[in-house]
């Protein structure tokens, strides 16, 4: 089987893997980038959220063979890619408001929040609910996630 060719965080990435292997495990175990987390393996929790060609996807349920040629961005690369400005605003807001508790869900939360603010620079609470509903947080940091998204949106206006 020829290697699968993609772009990972702006760099060419050629993966020698079973095409059915979920993107999450290819990134974590083959590329060695562990910022994206395994929470359910079934597109239920969002801990594994990455961007594929700018769109948020649940990488645990995305076979790597199905996205050959795509541009994959993970939490490790989001602050440097084309969404750097939004990502910085989101991460700054996260830090300013001390959103995190255990932190395990937060890479996924941030990836979803960056995608939301890229499409919808001034989200309403309803926009946040629908964009972030797929990202579970067992520590229930939801109050602060909502506040931080609004905070980031405000920072991006300026």
């Amino acid at each position: 089987m020829p290697p699968i060719k993609l772009t990972l965080n702006g760099k060419p990435w050629s993966v020698d893997a079973d095409p059915d292997m979920p993107l999450l495990w290819a990134v974590r175990e083959i590329a060695g980038k562990t910022g994206s987390k395994f929470g359910c393996g079934a597109a239920q929790c969002g801990a594994c959220t990455m961007h594929v060609d700018g769109q948020p996807v649940r990488s645990c349920s995305t076979p790597i063979g199905s996205i050959a040629g795509s541009k994959v961005t993970t939490i490790e690369g989001i602050a440097e890619g084309p969404q750097a400005k939004v990502a910085k605003a989101v991460q700054d807001a996260w830090i300013k408001l001390d959103v995190v508790q255990c932190g395990y869900c937060q890479s996924g939360q941030i990836m979803s929040a960056v995608a939301l603010l890229t499409d919808t620079p001034k989200p309403t609470d309803q926009d946040i609910d629908s964009a972030m509903n797929g990202n579970l947080c067992r520590c229930s940091t939801y109050v602060r996630i909502r506040a931080a998204i609004h905070e980031a949106a405000k920072a991006l206006e300026i």
């Binding site: 562990t34 910022g35 987390k37 939490i75 991460q91 830090i95 932190g103 395990y104 890479s107």
Partner: peptide
């Protein structure tokens, strides 16, 4: 400010699974 916020907001925090 929380001591673990930056690591946990940038994907750098290390958990056992990592």
């Amino acid at each position: 400010p929380r001591k673990d916020s930056v690591e946990k907001s940038t994907g750098k925090a290390v958990f056992a699974i990592d």
